[in-house]
Design a binder for these strands. Structure first.
Length: 850
RNA sequence: GCGCGAGUGGUGGAAUUGGUAGACUCGCUAGAUUCAGGUUCUAGUGUUCACUUCGGACGUGGGGGUUCAAGUCCCCCCUCGCGCACCA
């Protein structure tokens, strides 16, 4: 019989669905396990081969857990609000809802085709009013607690999406999504006060089982620094507040700098004698995009304020104030004390403007460069009452002094900014807030939720920055819930990150009409046990959802302050670059070499033709390069099991890996061999003697590797086992063991062969095999014999042979005997069951050789 | 610049309480089977010298070091990827 994967896969997918083998139950005696993968954005392109990598990984874990007796919740859903759908809808004159429906249907088919063991009765769709009702509800709770507020502020404006972006969505000054330039605009926006949770978001990372690089990235993003806030008197009469991490260096503060946007500047207008110059600089700074402002190695520019100066509180000296765009309005207080001796930027600025540089910490040469080491043991100089103290002592001494004088205090500062939460687009959750001319911003009544998205004729974004909803006068007009007067709905919508910030809770209780999640359900499932997702979400979705969860914890909705016990991350699937010489077909290569003289010449030609990108043999998959792999094609050609196997075998799960079409057939070949192996099976209800040790070793290896996400080596171990079965023969018990181990990876073929060999019930419902360490060891061991650390021979000995027996056997070995000629044994090292190393030295000759 | 990670055959990648480097694939070579096939099987495949045999030398980005023994530990250097980036 042939391995007819198409039929087999359809057959078992149907049976699993009918028998609901993957349904999670809310409650029961089994231990619970909640495995989560990031739900997809249902794009018009359908699934690409990147999707199945994390899905297959947690599918394997989930299937193994079920076999181990867990009640497993492994759900899937769709994060379906967002710009691509809206843009597609605009271009093709279809309603985004229709587009979304079609895309979800397509994704569902594709996901089912791959045999993932999702519980399809728990599918969540963020654009479903029954779902976004609760997204809106959470927003209302945040509003009521003062965590959601509207404020006028400079925002990131994407010139192409015509929409504001959160800081997290701006990458190198361009839009994370479309790559267009981002400019600064003054706009009134809804904000979420994530900064109020900054401390907890950092501290609580310590107890979580996240891979380290995720923790590090979140810590860096939140960016906590400890220092002091100090107010400096000015000659204008008011005070200038600054933040510094180096209060110890205050005696070295020879000037001040504030950002061009600083609010004090407005108040000082009548005192500034060079106001025109100041204004010109402000305008110049405002015109620059984020990218221009943050370009590295930038020359320091600025303007000295004439007419106002500050007073250094420790030295009592009057020092000048500058404005410069190297000081950011959005960090700290938007102003700094400049210590050019001990800060690189200040040093550069001081040099450019010929300002005095004072050394206050010993250890460098401040005439040559800033000495920035925060060496705790370095001594203070030129620092009045701090002189002679170490940096370590000087910091608290200075803070105490500032507190006594009432002009400063210890202060923790964060890089994290509040979250810009409104978008001027159509396809998102409407913000359930009403603008009343009398009462201001008023929350909608909870019982009026969901606030439905209206059907609009045109959802094109506008250049004015107004939401498309603003044109829907009927929808906009409403009555104020507070005073009953006429009022207006907020017309901005929520960002795409809103719906995904709590979706994992909805899976626990997806059909609940009374609450976002029922108490029984949340008490039972508690939180996600294992969450796998992309590194690109570390400072976006992962951070946002932790924030929302902490809020929900604070208002008593969820029982845990953290949503995910464990977080792992997969590497990207890359593609071969068809424009790189190495990836051309041989005929093409030959032709180019003939034409350009050499491979280097040929590559140079390709680089000239296509640009620098052609230099890289492995690149991201992209439509424009035509190297995108569609999982449907692989399934059609080889079957879902082969795709699943290959995508897990491709390499280290956490690292990026290039898709190679030719390598896929190795996985197919393996499954063919598993299939054909059935012909060789002899009767037997216990593991055969000759395979027993290998079987126990393989069970251990596969079990442990799945937990460690080392799927590639787990599969290699299974391949080795199959190779051994071909060599040594196998019985039915051996074969069925193989099928059980294979079942999480390639469930369809495992199920079919299980049935063919007369296995009872379903393979996926068998208990996960156990291993016995005492049965893993071979009776005989191959011992390596080294001389001076170099392998010279091997010898086969009974397991656990005593050291002296090993040495004796080694010395008897003919190859070793040859090595021993003219030498004597100095010492020998034996590593049990592994090797013996003989250390030799030349024999002293008793009599001269003839 | 700072942080994190990584450099191993023709290729994807194994192997770190230091203990036989290259498991398991792809590719390639030879043979067999089939013979229109992207089929299957057997043997081989790090480089190199010897090649009649035994075998020898070298080999994990480069250079030092520790050790009976180093891909693994220590010091210096180079390259690449990712993240952050004037954060006071």
């Amino acid at each position: 019989m042939k391995y007819e994967f198409h039929q087999i896969e359809k057959k078992w997918q149907k049976i699993w669905e009918e028998q609901k083998v993957n349904a999670a139950v809310n409650g029961g005696d089994k231990p619970k396990f909640y495995a989560l993968v990031e739900f997809p954005y249902p794009s018009g392109d359908g699934l690409h081969v990147g999707h199945p990598r994390p899905y297959t990984a947690l599918d394997i874990v989930s299937r193994k857990r079920r076999m181990e007796g867990y009640n497993v919740l492994f759900p899937i859903g769709f994060d379906a609000f967002g710009l691509p759908t809206e843009n597609f809808a605009i271009k093709n004159h279809v309603h985004p809802r229709e587009v979304t429906k079609r895309n979800i249907a397509r994704f569902t088919d594709q996901l089912k085709m791959l045999g993932f063991s999702f519980d399809w009765d728990r599918v969540v769709d963020t654009t479903d009013p029954e779902y976004y009702k609760w997204t809106q509800w959470i927003f209302l709770q945040m509003f009521k607690k003062g965590l959601a507020y509207k404020t006028k502020m400079p925002v990131n404006w994407c010139t192409s999406c015509k929409c504001v972006l959160a800081n997290e969505e701006v990458v190198n000054g361009v839009c994370e999504r479309c790559g267009s330039p981002v400019v600064r605009r003054e706009k009134s926006q809804w904000m979420l006060a994530i900064t109020k949770y900054a401390q907890r978001l950092i501290d609580d990372l310590d107890d979580l089982d996240y891979i380290e690089r995720v923790k590090i990235q979140q810590r860096n993003w939140i960016g906590r620094s400890i220092g002091a806030e100090v107010s400096f008197k000015t000659t204008a009469g008011d005070e200038m507040l600054i933040f510094t991490t180096r209060p110890d260096t205050m005696f070295g503060a020879t000037y001040m700098v504030m950002s061009p946007e600083h609010e004090l500047l407005k108040r000082w207008e009548d005192k500034l004698t060079n106001l025109a110059e100041v204004k010109a600089y402000q305008e110049e700074a405002a015109r620059k995009s984020d990218f221009e402002r943050t370009e590295m190695n930038k020359e320091k520019t600025g303007v000295r304020l004439q007419g106002v100066a500050a007073v250094n509180p420790v030295t009592g000296e009057e020092i000048p104030i500058f404005i410069s765009d190297y000081v950011l309005a959005t960090y700290g207080t938007g102003a700094i004390m400049a210590v050019p001796g001990h800060d690189e930027r200040d040093w550069e600025f001081a040099h450019a403007f010929d300002l005095p540089i004072v050394e206050v910490v010993q250890g460098g040469d401040v005439t040559k460069e800033a000495f920035v080491d925060k060496d705790e043991n370095a001594r203070m100089v030129n620092s009045g009452f701090l002189n002679g103290l170490s940096v370590k002592e000087a910091i608290p001494t200075m803070i105490r002094w500032l507190e006594e004088k009432g002009i400063g205090r210890e202060k923790v500062n964060f890089k994290l900014r509040d979250w810009v939460f409104s978008r001027q687009r159509y396809w998102g959750e409407p913000i359930p807030i009403i603008n009343c001319p009398k009462c201001g911003w008023v929350p909608m009544d909870e019982k009026d939720l969901p606030l439905l998205l209206p059907d609009v004729k045109s959802y094109e974004p506008t250049d004015t920055g107004e939401s498309p909803l603003a044109h829907m006068t009927d929808w906009v007009k409403c009555t104020c819930p507070k005073c009953g007067g006429s009022a207006e709905h907020e017309t901005d919508t929520m960002p795409q990150w809103a719906g995904s910030s709590w979706y994992f809770l909805r899976y626990m209780d997806p059909h609940n009409k009374e609450a976002l999640v029922g108490k029984d359900a949340i008490d039972y499932w508690n939180r996600v046990d294992w969450y796998n997702g992309g590194m690109e979400h570390t400072t976006l979705h992962l951070l946002y959802s932790r924030f929302w969860h902490k809020f929900l914890y604070d208002i008593g909705v969820v029982p845990t302050s953290e949503p995910y016990a464990k977080r792992t991350s997969h590497g990207m699937i890359l593609g071969l670059n068809p424009r790189n010489f190495a990836n051309l077909d041989p005929a093409e290569q030959e032709k180019l070499v003939a034409e350009f003289g050499s491979e280097e010449g040929a590559q140079k030609h390709l680089t000239e033709k296509y640009g620098e990108m052609a230099e890289h043999p492995i690149v991201k998959m992209s439509k424009s390069l035509g190297n995108v792999v569609n999982p449907n094609d692989i399934v059609n050609q080889y079957g879902a099991d082969t795709l699943r196997l290959y995508i897990m075998f491709i390499g280290d799960f956490e690292k990026a890996a290039p898709w190679q079409d030719t390598a896929v057939k190795g996985s197919k070949r393996f499954l063919d061999r598993v299939w054909n192996l059935e012909q060789k099976v002899t009767p037997g209800s216990a593991y055969s003697k000759e395979n027993e040790a290998s079987i126990h070793r393989t069970i251990k290896k596969v079990s442990e590797d799945i937990e460690a996400m080392k799927f590639n080596t787990a599969i290699a171990a299974l391949m080795t086992l199959v190779n051994e079965f071909y060599d040594k023969g196998l019985n039915k018990a051996d074969y069925q063991l193989l099928l059980k181990l294979l079942s999480p990876f390639t469930p369809h073929i495992a199920e079919e062969l299980w049935e063919m060999t007369g296995g009872e019930g379903l393979c996926c419902r068998q208990p996960w095999p156990k291993y016995d360490v005492s049965k893993m060891a071979d009776a005989e061991k191959t011992i390596a014999i080294q001389v001076g650390g170099k392998l010279r021979s091997t010898v086969v000995l009974p397991a656990d042979s005593p050291d002296d027996a090993v040495v004796a056997a080694a010395l008897k070995d003919p190859k070793i005997a040859k090595q021993m000629e003219g030498m004597e044994l100095v010492k020998s090292i034996v590593v049990k069951n592994k090797l013996v190393n003989l250390v030799l030295k030349p024999k002293k000759l008793d009599k001269p050789q003839e």
